[in-house]
Amino acid sequence: MKILIIEDEKELMQSMAEYLLSENYLCEFASNCNEALDKILNYDYDCILLDLTLPDGNGLRILEELKTLNKQDGVIIISAKNSLEDKIKGLQIGADDYLAKPFHLSELSARIQSLIRRRKFVGANQFNEHELLIDITAKSIYVNKTSLNITRKEYNLLLFLISNKNKVISKGALAEHLSGDIADMLNNHDFVYAHIKNLKKKLSEAGCKDYIKTIYGMGYKWE
């Protein structure tokens, strides 16, 4: 899987690259519009991470160029602006997703995977993970071919954990993934623990091994 990271903040670019490289993606970089245009002209990417505020112009230019070139690369906009207008405009021009800074790398990774999965599969979209079968289209989980009775939030939680396999995900990242903006209005993130507990119980009752590890009491990992 090849990813192009277009981001002028070097440190942020490095963090993203490090995280994604360890998930076996191939990463290339561009730190301004011209570099980026040069790359998209010559290569195809599975996913492009696009910062909108670049030193030599608005990142939306790159989106427009992709459209003119009739390229099929998936694009996730990463913007500091978090403005609805940019979001709508970006999605209209052809971006697939929009992520506002600051974001968790686990969230980024999950979004990339979801994007790639969506683009790769036509029709039924399923994949296996240990003894689990995850049906993205139907939003359901099967353990040894039996359907698992889980809530929408538990499903999202499980998918998020699996998308960040072998990575420690902080409680905050999980909370934000589950409740969006509301997460930071809640008093604490104990509800994440409650959800994890319920999910673990349901998985073990269905005969699934325990792959969810608690790390330092502050994060979780799917192994």
């Binding site: 963090s15 978090n82 800074k101």
Partner: peptide, 27 residues
């Protein structure tokens, strides 16, 4: 402020992956 915050957050996420963290450091 958004961009430095993003850098901060991403570095923490990376740091969290370090398997040799002590409990104290994790806290």
């Amino acid at each position: 402020m958004q961009t430095p915050l993003a850098v901060f957050q991403s570095k923490l996420d990376i740091l969290l992956q370090n398997s040799s963290l002590t409990n104290e450091q994790a806290q």
